[in-house]
């Protein structure tokens, strides 16, 4: 079976992924490999399918065809091709961390407990261990002073940094960022991007959907351009931003800059 011969280094491996909503194809035969430690940015105009692609990686959307492996383990479907039992699916999902456009913090828990909730109740860590780790992560994202605050008292940028700490707390194989700065006021974008940049420097594996071109250029190892559900360009950032091979990408970059 081809599934068993994956290169061991791939943190995420997407094969022949297709997905349609109500008969409209949003992803068409997408193939993508994300190596361990690699940062991949997915660009594309709105409606190009980039968020759907990201949400398929942790099975928040179920693709119609194709396969996705997280660090060698297939997600969503077992070896016999049947849908995974919910518990198994949850375990595989736990190996990915996701940061949402609208933060999606849990408002009934304070910042610290937002971060420790899953380590304690999913990974079964002790409260002390989880809190120690959480405090270290909050320190990393510059939010340790708000550990006792509740989400609704924070600014958007602060919320997003907590959400990043929450995802990191699961020690995921890959971090998925779904337009992490699109819901932020312009003056708050920088603080969030700075945190993500730090993570890339530390060698985290990341897949990022974004509209921030300068950021994508600075942080990526690989840039992928999605158009109507097809990957029409993939390149290292230098080539992508200065010497794209397709006309469509050049037009897109012109408009965005």
């Amino acid at each position: 079976m081809s599934e068993t011969t994956l290169p061991e280094t791939a943190a995420v491996s997407i094969r022949q992924l297709s997905k349609s909503f109500d008969g409209v194809e949003v992803l068409r035969d997408v193939n993508l490999e994300v190596a361990k430690g690699e940062v991949v940015t997915i660009l594309g105009s709105s409606g190009s399918g980039k968020s759907t692609l990201l949400r398929c990686i942790n099975w928040l959307e179920q693709p119609d065809r194709g396969s996705i492996h997280i660090a060698g383990q297939r997600i969503g479907v077992d070896d016999a091709g049947r849908p995974m039992p919910v518990k198994t699916l949850a375990r595989v999902r736990a190996r990915t961390g996701m940061v949402f456009q609208s933060f999606n913090l849990w408002p009934h828990l304070n910042v610290l407990h937002n971060v420790t909730e899953a380590p304690i109740h999913v990974l079964g860590k002790s409260k002390r261990e989880a809190e120690e780790h959480a405090r270290a992560l909050l320190e990393k994202v510059g939010m340790s002073h708000k550990a006792d605050a509740y989400p609704n008292t924070l600014s958007g940028g602060q919320k997003q940094r907590v959400a990043i700490a929450r995802a990191l707390a699961m020690q995921p194989e890959v971090m998925l960022f779904d337009e992490p700065t699109s819901a932020l006021d312009p003056e708050l974008v920088g603080e969030v991007l700075a945190v993500i940049k730090d993570l890339s420097a530390e060698g985290y594996t990341m897949v990022i959907v974004t509209h921030e071109m300068a950021f994508a250029r600075a942080v990526s190892d690989q840039v992928v351009f999605l158009e109507k559900g097809l990957i029409i360009e993939r390149a290292d950032p230098e080539t992508f931003f200065t010497n794209a091979s397709t006309e469509r990408v050049r037009k897109f970059l012109e408009r965005e800059s």
Binding site: N58, L60, V86, K87, A90, R91, V92, R93, A94, R95, T96, G97, M98, F100, S102, N104, L105, W106, E117, A118, H121, V122, A163, R166, A167, M170
Partner: peptide, 22 residues
């Protein structure tokens, strides 16, 4: 909120844990 449920799923919570804790 569907978003909060998704956030729970994304960190690997089962539906039961999501219901009970979130």
């Amino acid at each position: 909120s569907r978003e909060q449920r998704e956030a729970a799923m994304a960190v690997g919570m089962t539906p039961w844990i999501t219901f009970r804790r979130i």
